[in-house]
Design a protein around this nucleic acid. Structure first.
Lengths: 359, 359
DNA sequence: GCTAGCAGTCAATGATGTTGATTGCTAATA
DNA sequence: TATTAGCAATCAACATCATTGACTGCTAGC
């Protein structure tokens, strides 16, 4: 049951308006600001129909209308204007990247700030898990006679190094040989396979079982950390949420912040966006405790490899056009980043035809 | 101008009471609950005197009294009861440590949770800076012909490892020689000296200047990270603050959370506690934006070496006795931790004579 | 030095009325 | 048939006002 063009236009106007003001939208306001040539009475009829269809509700008789979750869904799918970033917004992004940048983690920390600053929502960042990174090298580095450093390098970078205390003094030559042997056995295999090698490999490394055990122990510890999901989620600008009237009630704010505090529970909400470029979760879809929130996330990738997921959490009446543009722009910047090089190629961010808006 | 014993008793009762209820304390309540044998009128006279001395204020005529910052200071210095942890509280601590624990960072993450959970305030944790850690070893580990891993080991552990792309292929032997040479030059020197060596050393390492440059570059990056102070501050349980009536006004909450968001500004507040075991900052002393807060922190150390600072942020009417007991207990557990071993010696936490309180 | 009692103060509460925004409905109009 | 004007009804928001009750400070007497 498709909406008439006029209904779509009105619905879009309602959502636009409500996103900006958080105030129920009245027929009069719509007639004046968005639908010149129509009287408020006509619009009332349309609104009444849209309410019937489940796109709008009234907080109480004699108040304006507020969009439902369905309306937001329709809005982001069809109705939403494609927004371009203003020059000043683009400048904010570029400014952050002008500084020397190193590892992907640093990059994401920076963009987390950018994202929160431009959108004025809370940004969430998730580092990708490493279970399936490919083993490139494993090294045992002797530090002193009774301790060594175990370094595990994957195609995603160094994942873990740990100092291990040895029971007996072991020569550097032996360490180096053991490392070479084990590296070779697992070269280009995904990380999780190291913990569960097939029988052929198992036999192969039997002779270095002690050192292999060091590696598995470290990996187990690392994976168990990873599985608790903590530390892989970062938040920036939590306080921003308090700017919005939907959280002017402290109890509302509290339930929200409790969810944000429990970062391990946040992880699946952000992460399960899967293969899609964007994921938009609105209202109840966002998860327990986030009924009146929306979560918009994007996967960032370099050379087709996902390097992180980032997004924002905000009130359900979020400025979706803005958020999506910003995520898109940041994604472009990131995918233009040569990892480990620190040099930023020039990238066309698109947009910014119009002049800066006033601050 | 010392207070009479009775005034002290009354003041203590006021603070105790206010800490629990957040409601201005009336003479009647004091007479009934804390000073049997005295009439409320008598207590009113004493309260009036204490107000004169600057320890109490009335939010308005005809309301009970509220302690001033001075009163809190006096309270923690002299008046406060020494509280022992209940068995159930101790159990919470022990439970957290029963799991296998690795590096100091993991330990602090755990204790941050414990602390927030038991006290019901927000816990803050600061990792110590490494500027003055002593260099133990520097290693260049060849990963493939054109890249190597630089590992810098101090007495505090591995501080940093970074993959460096090399312009030309360099033999493992040369790398190893360079590493040995540079390590030897800086052995047991504080880390910051590596960036600013005296002339003798400067000449000594001249022959390996390229590799020395790699090290300094990494350290500079590391220090600059460290100096922004971010990432070294961790918060747990921010939402807990919203439980307290002092933040039932959203604007109050907002200014508070803005401060918590700006972790780089939080750092000095937590860190400058310096050599003392405990630092208690009340009201304006806590810092900008935290006028109605108190910060209580403790330095944790192992073998006399500070390994971190941890504390809580809460309303000014904080349960100081509880917070201090908990910090003390956690400190004891931590200093009993053999780093890098993962085995927890049994430690006497003291306290817990009385039976568990009901949950 | 302590206390009983009383008058004064003031936040909190709740009842009451007013205002103004906004709707639904109906009848007139294009 | 689609639109509009007009009107009664609804209801949150706000302001006003009186009431209540929890305090205090003060004074006079024990």
């Amino acid at each position: 049951m498709a909406l008439s063009a006029r209904k779509e236009k009105i619905l879009r106007a309602v959502v636009d308006n409500y996103i900006n003001t958080a105030v129920p939208v009245s027929s009069k306001e719509l007639a004046e600001k968005h639908m010149p040539g129509l009287s408020s009475a006509t619009i009332r009829n349309e609104l009444s129909a849209l309410e019937e269809m489940g796109y709008l509700v009234q907080p109480h008789t004699s108040s304006g209308r507020v969009p439902t979750s369905d309306a937001y869904k329709l809005y982001v799918d069809k109705l939403m204007p494609r927004r371009k970033l203003t020059r000043s917004e683009l400048n904010v992004i570029k400014k952050y990247f002008s500084a020397q940048i190193g590892e992907i983690e640093d990059v994401l920390k920076k963009t987390a700030k950018v994202l929160s600053e431009i959108t004025n929502y809370t940004s969430v960042t998730v580092m990708p898990k490493m279970h399936d990174a490919l083993v490139k090298n494993i090294k045992f580095v002797s530090l002193d006679p009774y301790s060594m450093l175990v370094v595990i390098v994957t195609d995603g970078g160094v994942i873990k190094d740990t100092v291990v205390e040895l029971d007996e003094s072991i020569s550097e030559e032996y360490l180096s040989a053991a490392a070479k042997f084990i590296s070779k056995a697992f070269y280009n295999r995904p990380l999780f396979e190291v913990l569960d090698p097939d029988n052929a490999i198992k036999e192969e490394i039997e002779s270095y079982r002690t050192f292999y055990a060091y590696v598995t122990e470290i990996l187990e510890h690392y994976f168990s950390d990873e599985d608790t999901d903590e530390g892989r989620v970062m938040l920036e600008g939590s306080s921003k949420l308090l700017d919005y009237p939907e959280y002017s009630d402290v109890n509302k704010a509290k339930t929200l912040f409790q969810v944000l505090d429990a970062r391990e529970k946040l992880y699946p909400l952000i992460k399960e966006s899967g293969e899609m470029d964007f994921s938009i979760k609105i209202g109840s879809a966002a998860g327990g405790g986030l009924e009146d929130c929306a979560i918009v996330t994007a996967n960032y990738s370099i050379d087709g490899k996902t390097v992180g997921t980032q997004g924002v959490i905000g009130p359900i009446r979020m400025d979706y056009p803005l958020v999506i543009s910003v995520l898109d722009s940041i994604g472009k910047v990131i995918s233009s980043l040569p990892l480990h090089k620190g040099q930023l190629r020039d990238v066309n961010l698109g947009g910014a035809d119009k002049e800066d808006e006033k601050e």
